[in-house]
Design a protein around this nucleic acid. Structure first.
Lengths: 337, 337
DNA sequence: TTGTAAGCGTTATCAT
DNA sequence: ATGATAACGCTTACAA
């Protein structure tokens, strides 16, 4: 395979000129440029990316660390995010580098290795040490989500609080008073925000949170099933369920069927909908009422934000909160009297 | 951040010695090595991977091109594969580089860029030009699946033919004669193999394939639903359905419920089960009978194969076919009389 | 066992 | 507009 040197020799030009021609430098002769491009094509020249990286100090790639323990590697939400992210970067000729690890220090090593120009931080915990580590290093990163407290970092998040506030309020307006919440694990910031939205809506109606109606768990089908079974075994079962993920709602739905409870008639359900292409909430047996914010969009947006960040955009200009829409379908109705 | 030079100066040693100490060369003094390691730790030294790559000619990463058109980016099968793959490589300190593209030529450019030491080829078509391109380049790659004809390349595949032969045979043994097949798209090799297994089992009972009972489609919930509706609208609806994916079977299940047909009583269903952690076939309302082969395992195996390949293992020693197991649960029973 | 020095294939600086 | 030449940070003969 031809390298720069070969190409330069073949053309009778210096490597510098060839390099310039290839990289669209302004001061290059149009004629020369044309010849170089032709020769490059002819000799099947491909720039060696390691050499280029070494010379420029840029990696041309962004990184993603997959926290193994979080089951991110098996989470359908993740693949949708990754799709948006990778596609957006491919358009700019940037790669995505994946690494699996549980260790927060991996982020540090990773950032320092020069393998990537920036990182995405997925699944932020309420108080996430990774944010601190990367901030101190001054390494470019964008958080998908937020941690608690004021954010001194770039992030893209959805309005979890607002989404669940609105959803809960809607159920209250329909007359529901015993509303259950099936949420993500307690360490996840998004789960806390959603809980607070839920709590605040109830508080406005002078209803206290009943801890027997709130569950935190992995958002799997199984967990949805299990907790719905528990909920239905209550003396006074809830008349409505809020659920943090469509996958989990699949399990809710399965259990309700077994309980002979019809969604949208006997019991109302609002699910959060990440817009997963493999699991559409409008296709549930009873089409779901949802709070919707496509996670794929987050991937696309964060790709752009990361690029902006390394190009010098200030952190304060890279803090996006996306509203979720409440979409009402057949799974909600007025509370039974 | 400290580099080799700094470290060497700090220690009063040559860069060469430091490099050797860091890379476990045999000829290094134990004492020296210890000092180097300590200093490296103290100065927070991280080798620059671009430089190392340039010097060694190895990328320390394997690549995966995501064919956008195939919806691989939204396919839950993919995330499970990726999980196994990335985790296995992380254990060897290797990265995964992702790129999105539809163009077969991307593979060539990618391979030649030096960004990766090897590639995984996902979703092989019946006659896949990518296999040819990479073979001609003599670039290390492993196919997840197979193409038609004799395989001159490294691959890991499951025994699709055998799985569907066995499944179909089992349904025939239960007395079923009108058996439908909901399969992947016709361009996918795995879909052809499964079809042939199905066809061969039927042939052994002198049954010809009824084209009205065979569908090829994207393996989504929606498609499962739609085609089951069509199947049930037949004058003589099938008494059994074979389905190529659990996700699709979700749609089958939804439609059967609407048709008031109970799985395992009114109609038998066998699904293929890729062992997706987010969608367990034992958790369906009616636990599914399946042909099972975890796709995550493929990720793990292929990671190992790729490593072997670049270490010189012959292609002929890197051609693995994994049997799928037939697991019988509640969704199958004898044909109604 | 360690040091010297020549690459690896680019880009970037400084001349011309 | 182009050419020399020095980085970039590491590995690896070859010497010592």
């Amino acid at each position: 395979m031809a390298n720069l040197k070969d190409l330069a020799q073949h053309l009778g030009l210096s490597q510098a000129t060839v390099s310039r021609a290839l990289n669209d430098y302004p001061t290059i002769n149009a004629e020369t440029k044309k010849k170089v491009l032709e020769a490059a094509n002819l000799l099947n020249y491909r720039p060696n990316s390691s050499a280029r990286r070494l010379a420029t100090g840029k990696a041309g790639a962004f990184g993603l660390v997959l926290p193994v323990t979080d089951n991110l590697l098996t989470d359908p939400h993740f693949v949708d995010f990754l799709g948006g992210f990778t596609e957006a970067l491919a358009a700019e000729d940037l790669d995505v580098v994946l690494t699996a690890s549980d260790n927060p220090q991996t982020y540090k090593r990773y950032a320092e290795s020069g393998k990537v120009d920036g990182l995405v931080l997925s699944n932020p915990k309420i108080d996430d040490i990774r944010v601190q580590i990367l901030s101190e290093m001054q390494f470019p990163f964008v958080v998908h989500g937020r941690t608690s407290g004021p954010a001194q970092y770039a992030f893209y998040d959805i309005d979890n609080h607002g989404a669940f506030l609105t959803a809960t309020r809607h159920l209250l307006d329909l007359g529901h008073r015993r509303i259950a919440l099936l949420n993500g694990t307690t360490d996840a910031m998004f789960a806390r925000s959603r809980f607070e939205g839920y709590r605040d809506a109830l508080a406005a109606h002078d209803i206290k949170v009943d801890s027997a109606l709130v569950f935190n768990a992995q958002m799997t089908e199984e967990q949805g099933y299990t907790h719905t079974r528990i909920l239905c075994a209550h003396d006074q079962r809830p008349t409505a369920i809020l659920c943090s993920s469509a996958l989990m709602t699949l399990g809710v739905s399965r259990r309700l069927r077994e309980e002979k409870l019809q969604m949208g008639r006997d019991i109302s359900v609002i699910s959060h909908d990440d817009g997963l292409s493999s699991l559409k909430t409008e296709n549930f047996s009873v089409p779901l009422s949802v709070t919707r914010a496509p996670i794929r969009e987050a991937g696309t947006e964060i790709a752009g934000m990361l690029i902006s960040r390394i190009n010098g955009t200030a952190i304060s200009d890279l803090q996006h909160v996306r509203k979720a829409e409440l979409i009402l379908r057949a799974s909600t109705s007025t509370a039974p009297v």
